[in-house]
Computed example of a mutant assay.
Amino acid sequence: MIKVRHYTIAITLLIAMVFQIIPVPVQVDLYRPDWVLIVLSYWVMALPHRANVGVAFTSGLALDILLGTAMGVHSFALSISIYVLAANYQRLRNYSVWQQAVIIGVVSALYHSLLFWLLRLLTDVTFRFEELWPVLTSMALWPWIFWLLRKVRRQLRIT
């Protein structure tokens, strides 16, 4: 029998990717949080030996394919952002959930800045401040995603 707990990280990342690409109205799409970044951030802080920069890179490649961006753009941005978290996971674990939300906001801003600069080098995109709304929505969602994934991790006894 297949044990779900062995595939929980992959399943949560797949769900995050579905949320990342699900069609929503244009007015709502402007505020779409970085689902994959949030879920990866949780797993990197909770289980750094199972979720790491390599998982971020492959998730970024999947995002590049799903979103139709140039290959490697999301991979690079996710890898750098997750590396920052992975390098400091022991310190970040000791922060309260609200302080972690601020850190997630900073990491999300780094992620969007890297995406912008990479796309600027490859194509002719222009910067708009509206593209930073996902930073705030990611910060706002962090406590609920954190508590949900922690509950899943504890119920399934994932170590």
Rank of each mutant, 00 (worst) to 15 (best):
S79G: 09
G54D: 07
R93W: 04
R120T: 04
W43A: 02
A140C: 08
H49P: 00
Y111I: 04
E131C: 09
S59N: 13
I22E: 01
L40S: 04
W98V: 09
S81M: 08
P33S: 06
A86N: 14
S59R: 06
S41R: 01
W43R: 05
V39N: 06
L47M: 12
R32Q: 05
F76H: 00
T126V: 09
L115S: 11
F116V: 05
W35G: 00
V36D: 04
Q90Y: 11
I65T: 12
Y95C: 01
A87M: 11
A77T: 06
T123N: 12
R32V: 01
Y95Q: 04
A109L: 15
P23N: 03
G54N: 06
L132P: 06
I65M: 08
Y31E: 03
T137N: 01
I104W: 11
F57G: 03
G54R: 02
I38Q: 15
T58P: 05
A56M: 02
W133L: 09
V28A: 13
W117D: 04
Y95I: 02
L121Q: 12
F76G: 02
L122S: 06
V26E: 04
S79C: 12
I38N: 13
A56D: 01
S75G: 09
V24Q: 15
A109R: 08
S81R: 03
V97G: 06
L67M: 15
R93P: 00
M139F: 04
L141K: 02
N94T: 14
A101M: 06
R128L: 11
V26F: 05
M71N: 08
A101C: 10
R120C: 01
L47T: 08
N94I: 12
L114M: 14
V73A: 09
L40T: 01
L121E: 07
G72N: 02
A101K: 08
Y95D: 00
L136M: 09
W133E: 03
D34K: 09
R50Y: 14
V53E: 02
Q90P: 02
A77H: 07
L61F: 09
S81L: 07
V97D: 12
Y31R: 04
E130H: 12
Y111F: 14
W43Y: 06
V24M: 15
V84G: 14
V107K: 13
A51R: 10
Y42Q: 01
F129C: 10
L61N: 03
